[in-house]
Design a protein around this nucleic acid. Sequence first.
RNA 1: GGCGACGUAGCUCAGCGGUAGAGCAGGGGACUCAUAAGCCCUUGGCCACAAGUUCAAAUCUUGUCGUCGCCA
Length: 591
Amino acid sequence: MTENILVSVAWPYANADIHVGNITGAYLPADVFARYHRLKGNRVLMVSGTDAHGTPITVRADAEGLSAEEVYKRYHRRFLDLFVKYGLTYDLFTTTHTENHFKVSQDIFLALKENGFLYTQTEKQWYAPGKGRFLPDRYVEGECYLCHYPNARGDQCDNCGSLLDSTQLINPRAKGGGDLELRETEHFYLDLGKLAPALADYLNAGKDHWRPNVINRSRQDVTELRGRAITRDLDWGIPVPVDGWRETGKCLYVWFEAVIGYFSASIEWSRNNGQPDAWKDWWYNPNAKTYYFIGKDNIPFHAVIWPAQLIGARRLYESDASKTLNLPYDVPANEFLNLEGQKISGSRNWAVWGLDAAERYDADALRYYLIANMPEARDADWSWSEFVARNNNELVATWGNLANRMLSFAHKNFEGEVPDPGNLRPEDRELLAAVEAGFDSVGELLGAVKLRAALGEALRVASEVNRYLDVRAPWSEIKTDRVAAAKTVFTALNAIDSLKTLFAPFLPFSSERLHQYLGHGGSLFGAQKIVAYDESSGSHEALTYDRSGAVGKWQPSKLKPRQVLHPPAPLFKKLEEAVAEEEVARLHGAG
RNA sequence: GGCGACGUAGCUCAGCGGUAGAGCAGGGGACUCAUAAGCCCUUGGCCACAAGUUCAAAUCUUGUCGUCGCCA
């Protein structure tokens, strides 16, 4: 039965480049999962985009003398390039700065308002009369009222680390000068307390497949929910769709509108593809499964607050009153990746940047290490020496070498063709059965989002083929019994052809090449394309996935005798030990 | 301070009520198709600590300590 699978992926924030921790935390597991389901023949929709709004972006824009729009576009473009290099196959990677997203976010807001889940409240905030606008907390500095550090930021003290209430700062001053005064301002709040009972019902039923850290934390959070402000005094964002509000420079708070991106991007994808209602197959079909791939810092927003927004909005663009928007089926959040034992820090440049690493290493080598070492249950550590060791000992030695040794052997001894085996021996059938079982065992682990275990299982299957070859020893058979050697080589090539598929979700580039080496036509997956989409107020670039022409199937090989093989080449590169030292030195030199 | 996850072989982790497991690293061996890769054998652990429940506990309960994170 074909399933509808929505793969929702965390939205990178447009004020910093992406590092390996971000990739392994959310983007890569989502891609592996999406590719697996596509091979299974399921209908996959993988969406995300750049989170373009909010104060940190205006801060950076001010610092660089650019507009907020220029800043977001620069990072957005770099995200697109990185995703192409790592083969992350978003059906649509868009941005929150589109007319479509504005409209959908405002409509969700209005639905929540209409359904009685919003209320307003007045609070005091810093206002700059000279500039005629309210200042975000981090634009106000002063003495910390807790530790008396003289240069604390309004939102947080850099000295004692405490989160601050900016109105309590001692001797407050505006960053960059100018007058400052406290003024009353009114904001909308999401009434999470009112939504708590429905949320508790949702989180207490049928969540056995959720990771313990995700479900336990979320159940705890629901017990202490309070209203939360969803608007801000800010000009870079989505205007509040209420008369008298949009005129006074009030916007939807980024945390509120960014998560709506999963929904708006699904709608945009449908429109871009000329099937404006297609998104409903993922959002209203109760049998569709929706997954949210995020880092652990985002758990409350995806397992509690986003479901609250969906429950409160109930339905949108749907007249059938019996239907409600689908809530997350699973939120397989990953923990964090450290680097050489220390926390990754972009500002201290203690990071392995995605685009930089892709300059020097193949995407599949990076993908392999990031999946084998994925922080699924606890924080993990990126170590360059481990990267080199696992690349050489596991990826190259067990899998790359298996493919290369057998293709080379077939090329030299069977005129570059798949030999005709005649009748297979029991031991040949046994091996093929063991490989075939891998489609169930690897597939089951992938379906349960246990990606490192799934990759380990695929590698174990590859080891079985290595063992089979050692027992059969076709290099000996060929000297005395060419027919026996033909059976062995046929069987091994068949197994390798199947392994190509088992590894494909993890290592798509090398599997694609192996597919060609084995003499098949077509490609396993579709193609990534960067496309510009026009709206009446402007255009935005997006990453898309064209699935037409993809021939990959999650099925054992049906390799034909006499199929012509292409001249083989090693799938992966062995790395020098010195690479690890060079990279660590680079890390320290740069920091 | 409250809460959560985690703490198992040198390293990375699986097991989560019934005689301690895998991969890598270390040691030994036979082979040579292959990126000196692969294969076979092997060294190695009071399962953080302490009490309790049970015929039986890495596995359940409680407490302590440690790591990471969230909240205040």
